[in-house]
C-alpha cells in the first residue's frame, strides 16, 4: 500500500455518509459520492507489534471506504475516506489531485 497522505483530518458524516471534511486546515464540501466499499484492515500488524506489550484497543477488522469528490476554496479533489467500523475514526487513504 502506498503511503497515506499526511495531515490532520476531521470528517462530518450524516448517517455514515461523509458530507464535509477539514484537512490540512482547509475545509471541503463533499459534492458527490463516487463509490464506496468495505476494506480489510491490517489488524495483524498491530497484533504482532503488541505481543509482549500490554494490549490497548483491539485492532479494527475492516473499514468502509468512501470515494468522494470534495470541493474547497482551491478547487476540487477526489479522495478516499476510510471510516473504521464502529468508531469515529476517519482517515484519508488516497488522494487524486
Amino acid at each position: 500500500m502506498t503511503k497515506r497522505p499526511p495531515g490532520a483530518l476531521t470528517v462530518v458524516a450524516v448517517d455514515g455518509v461523509p458530507t464535509r471534511l477539514r484537512w490540512r486546515d482547509r475545509s471541503y464540501l463533499v459534492e458527490r459520492v463516487l463509490s464506496h466499499w468495505v476494506e480489510s484492515g491490517d489488524w495483524w500488524q498491530a497484533v504482532a507489534r503488541r505481543v509482549g506489550t500490554a494490549a490497548a484497543q483491539p485492532a479494527p477488522l475492516s473499514c468502509t471506504v468512501w470515494r468522494v469528490e470534495a470541493r474547497g476554496s482551491r478547487g476540487a479533489m477526489v479522495v478516499d475516506l476510510a471510516h473504521e467500523d464502529g468508531t469515529d475514526t476517519w482517515s484519508l487513504v488516497r488522494l487524486a489531485d
Binding site: 500500500m1 502506498t2 463509490s35 464506496h36 466499499w37 468495505v38 476494506e39 470515494r67 488516497r94
Partner: peptide, 24 residues
Amino acid sequence: HRSRDPRAAASDIDGSPVRGRAHS
C-alpha cells in the same frame, strides 16, 4: 461482500495497483 470491484480500473486514483477480490 461490498468489496471494491478490482476490474473497474487497473490502477488506483493515486497510481497504486488495485487489489481486490471477486466479491464486489
